[in-house]
Amino acid sequence: MSNSAYRWMVAVPAFVVVAAFGVYLGTTHGAPTALDRSVMDTVTGLRTPTLTSVIKDVTVIFSPVAVTIWTALLAAVLVWRDRSLVRALPVVATVAAAGIVGEAIKLAVSRPRPPAIDQLGAVEATYSYPSGHVMGTTALVAAAVSVCAASVGARVAAGCLAAATVVVCAATRLYLGAHWVTDVLAAICVGVGVALVVPVVLAAVIGRLAPHLPAWVGVPAANAGSKA
C-alpha cells in the first residue's frame, strides 16, 4: 500500500467520526454526553489556585494566535535552511486547512460551550466543537514531525514529543472548562486527518504546476523528512 493510500485510509474514518458525532450533537442541541459530564466533574475536583494560575499561562501557548506565530517561525526556519518552500508549504497549508475545516465544523454544529459555572477565567461563548486550541496544535506538531523527522528513530521520538504536546494542550482546555472532552477528541481527529491528507493534495497540485513554477518553490512530498 502506498504512503498516500495509507494516509487517506486513516484520515477518512477520522473525518467520518467527527462528522457523525457532529450530526448527533445537532440532534441533541449540543448537550454533553455522560462521558463529557464525567470528565468535567473529575477535572473540576482537581483544581487548585496554584495549578489554575499555571495552566492559564500554559494554555496561551496553544492559542490560535500563538499557533499561527509558531507556524510562521517554523516555516521561516525551513525556508532559510532549504532555500525553497518544499517543506514550509506543507506546514503552512496544513495549519491553515485545519483552521478552515475546524471553523466550518464549529459553524455547522453550533455546540454551546460548557456552562459558565464550569469555566475558569473569562467565560468563552464561541462555539465549542471542536477545540480550536487542540486542533491547531495537533495539525502543527503533526506537520512538523512529517517534514522535520527523516529517520525512523527520529520520527518515533518526534512523534512521542508531539503526542505529549497535544495531551498537555488538551488537558489545559479541559482543566479550564473551556471544552467538553468530546470537543477535544474531535479536534485531535481533525488535526491528524488534515495533517495526513493536505501534504498529499499539495504535492499533487504543485506537481502539476511545477513546469510553470520557479525552481525554488520545489515540489513538497507527502512524507518529506529533514535534510541531512
Rank of each mutant, 00 (worst) to 15 (best):
Thr138Asn: 03
Cys169Pro: 00
Asp183Gln: 10
Ala170Ile: 06
Arg111Val: 12
Val141Ile: 06
Leu140Ala: 01
Ser128Arg: 04
Ala98Asp: 04
Gly153Val: 13
Ile117Ala: 15
Ala150His: 15
Thr165Trp: 02
Glu124Phe: 11
Thr165Met: 07
Leu161Lys: 01
Leu161Thr: 14
Gly191Trp: 03
Ala154Cys: 07
Ala171Ser: 11
Pro114Tyr: 11
Gly177Val: 12
His133Ser: 03
Val167Ser: 04
Thr137Leu: 00
Ser146Thr: 11
Leu176Met: 14
Leu185Asn: 01
Ala122Gln: 13
Glu103Lys: 08
Gly102Tyr: 09
Gly121Trp: 09
Cys169Phe: 04
Asp118Tyr: 12
Leu185Lys: 01
Ala171Gln: 05
Ser110His: 14
Arg173Thr: 08
Ala162His: 05
Ala139Leu: 01
Cys160Asp: 00
Val167Gln: 02
Ser131Trp: 05
Thr138Val: 01
Cys160Asn: 02
Ile117Glu: 15
Ala163Phe: 12
Asp183Val: 12
Trp180Phe: 14
Ala98Thr: 06
Gly102Gln: 05
Ala186Asn: 10
Ile105Arg: 06
Pro130Ile: 01
Ala178Lys: 08
Leu107Val: 13
Ala158Asp: 03
Ser151Leu: 07
Ala178Thr: 07
Leu174Arg: 05
Gly132Val: 07
Gly191Pro: 07
Pro115Cys: 04
Ala149Val: 13
Tyr127Cys: 03
Arg111Tyr: 10
Val181Gln: 09
Leu174Pro: 05
Ala122Leu: 10
Ala158Lys: 09
Arg113Tyr: 11
Thr182Phe: 05
Pro115His: 13
Val141Glu: 03
Val184Ile: 15
Gly99Val: 03
Val123Met: 14
Ile100Gln: 00
Ile117Trp: 07
Val184His: 04
Ser110Lys: 13
Ala122Pro: 13
Ala157His: 08
Pro115Gln: 08
Val152Phe: 15
Ser131Pro: 03
Val147Ser: 03
Ala150Met: 08
Gly177Trp: 08
Thr126Met: 04
Gly159Lys: 10
Thr182Val: 14
Ala187Met: 08
Ala164Phe: 10
Ile188Asp: 02
Arg113Phe: 13
Ala163Cys: 05
Ala108Glu: 03
Ile117Asn: 11
Pro114Glu: 09
Leu174Gly: 09
Ile105Tyr: 08
Val181Gly: 11
Ile105Val: 15
Ala144Tyr: 04
Ala157Ile: 12
Ser110Val: 06
Ala139Thr: 05
Cys160Leu: 15
Tyr175Ile: 03
Pro130Thr: 09
Ala186Met: 02
Val101Cys: 04
Gly102Phe: 09
Val141Met: 00
Cys148Asp: 00
Gly99Ser: 00
Arg173Gly: 07
Gly132Lys: 00
Val147Thr: 03
Ile105Lys: 01
Pro112Glu: 07
Ala122Trp: 05
Ser151Asn: 12
Val152Asn: 13
Lys106Met: 07
Ala187Ile: 08
Val181His: 02
His133Asp: 00
Val134Ala: 10
Thr182Pro: 09
Ser146Met: 12
Pro130Lys: 06
Pro112Ser: 09
Leu140Tyr: 01
Glu103Thr: 13
Lys106Gly: 05
